[in-house]
Design a protein around this nucleic acid. Sequence first.
DNA 1: AGCGGAACCTGTCGGC
DNA 2: TGCCGACAGGTTCCGC
Length: 271
Amino acid sequence: MPELPEVQTIINYLKDNILNQTILDIEIKNHKFIKNVSTNEFINNLKNKIILDIDRKGKYLIFKLSNNLYMIVHLRMEGKFFIDNKKVERKHDYIIFKLSNNIYLSYNDSRQFGTFHLTNEPNKLKEINKIALDPLNDNFDFHYFHSKVSKSNKNIKSILLDQTIVSGIGNIYASEILFESNISPFKTGKQLSKKEIEHIIEASKKILKLALKYNGTTIHTFSFGNNKTGDFTKYLKVVNRENKNCLICNTKIKRIKQQSRSTFYCDKCQK
DNA sequence: AGCGGAACCTGTCGGC
DNA sequence: TGCCGACAGGTTCCGC
C-alpha cells in the first residue's frame, strides 16, 4: 500500500500520539511478521523501552527506542497502525503494544506481508542498508541520479520502482512522476537525455512533497489515524484515469502492464 | 547478470 | 445471487 508520502503521513500521526510512551507489554497473535529474532526475544527486548523517535528510510519505519534499540517496520501492501484508548477486537490486528497512559498501538495487516526487525545498528541491517536516497533528500540530485540511470537498459518506470536506486516511490507515484516529466514509461535509462533526468528529479521532489502535504493518496485501502484517508487522490493526473481524457491534451489515458504492474500514461504528452 | 513471473496473503469488484 | 478471475500504494525468490 504505502509509498513515501503515506509512510511519512503515518509516521507524523504516530509521533503525535505515542512519542515518549513506554512499551509496557506486547501481545503477538501471529509470529510470522517478526523476521530476525524469536518472538520471545522480540517481546523481552521491547518491554519497558521508551519510544524516543520515529524516522524513515525509504518505505521503512524506524522506531528509535531507549537503550539503543531500533524496531524496523515495513508495511508492504496493507500494514496499518491503529491507536486506541482501550483494548479493542479488530480483524487482522496481529501485534498489539500496550503503552503507558493506557494507549494500545495495534499493527493490522490483512494480507500479512509486513515485516518487523529488531536491531542495535539499523544501517547494518541488510534490508535498510541497501535502500537508496529518497527524492526528498537534498543529496538526491543530478550527479547522483545520472550516475545510477544513464547506463541502464531498464525502462524508467522500473528504475523508479527500484528501491536501491531511488527509494520511496511506488507504483502510483512512478506513473504520476513520469507524466509530470513528460517522459514515456518505455524509455530506458540509457535513452534519457540530461535534461530529461533533470525533469524526473524535479518532478519526483514536487509530486512527493505535494502528496505528503495532502496526507498521501487513497485509492483502495490506505488510511492512517484510525481510518482517515489521503487527499492527494483528487490530484492524480493519470493513475486510475484509464480511458479518461488527459488533462493537458485530451488524449485518452492508457493503461498497460510493465513487470506485471499497471502503468498509466498519456502517449501524446509523454515521449 | 538480468529478466519475467510466481509467491507471499486476503479482500473486493466486475462480468457472466 | 454466486462463482471465478483479475487486481491491489511491495518485495523477494526462483528459474531460465
